[in-house]
Simulated scan of single mutants.
Amino acid sequence: MKFERLHPKIIAIRSNNTKSREEKLLAICQILQDSIDYYNWVGLYFANHEKQTLHLGPYVGEPTDHTIIPFGKGICGQVAVSNQNFVVPDVAAQDNYIACSFTVKSEIVVPIFVNGINIGQIDIDSHVLNPFTENDERFLEFVTKQISTLF
């Protein structure tokens, strides 16, 4: 399975002592986009709990205007509140969706926890309808656990 082959690569990036945290986070985003053909935009948002906002961190893919997202708004904002994975098979069917590009057809967002607190999330957009499976969720949970060790 493609996901299992990526586990050691993600661990190697996380464990690299010559790169900064930002460089490691960007490298993780890059390897995900490069390795999984339907991961067309991969980014990280980090929470500011005081202001109840998410702030865009490292990402790969098309530029986005959505650099700050209020908690509760869009898929990412909903995950900041629910603390649950959110898989959107068809973004056109979502009422509370923030459109990034007409090419985005689906999205998956998985929270990142540090000491039980949702500090952010990984957000992946796809140009394909309904590509995300439970395997994607389990893999991205592994990725977010690796990311959490950087904080």
Results as ranks from 00 to 15, higher is better:
K145Q: 13
I68A: 09
L56P: 05
E62W: 05
V81G: 00
F113G: 03
S20L: 15
Y39S: 04
K24L: 04
D136I: 08
I31F: 04
Q146R: 08
D34E: 15
V87G: 01
D37K: 13
P89E: 11
N130S: 12
P111K: 10
Q121Y: 06
G57S: 09
I11M: 12
Q33E: 13
L32S: 01
I69L: 05
C29R: 01
N135K: 11
N118C: 12
Q78N: 14
K24F: 01
F86Q: 12
H127E: 13
G120S: 09
A93H: 10
L6F: 02
A27N: 09
L140K: 02
Q30K: 15
K19L: 15
P70W: 02
A99S: 13
L129H: 14
V143I: 05
L54M: 14
I31Q: 04
R21K: 14
L32W: 06
L140R: 02
Q52M: 13
Q78K: 08
M1A: 11
I10K: 05
T18I: 14
I119T: 15
D34S: 10
S20Q: 11
V91C: 03
R138Y: 09
V88K: 00
A12Q: 15
N83P: 03
G57A: 05
A93C: 12
H127Y: 15
N115P: 00
F139L: 09
E141P: 00
V143L: 06
H49V: 07
L140W: 05
C29I: 06
T133A: 05
G72K: 10
I108F: 05
N17M: 12
T53Y: 07
P63M: 06
N130I: 08
I122M: 11
V42K: 01
I10R: 04
P131N: 01
G72W: 04
V114E: 09
F132T: 00
Y45A: 04
Q84F: 02
E23W: 08
T67D: 03
T18Y: 09
N83F: 08
C76Y: 00
C76N: 00
R138I: 12
K145A: 11
N96V: 04
A27E: 12
V91Y: 02
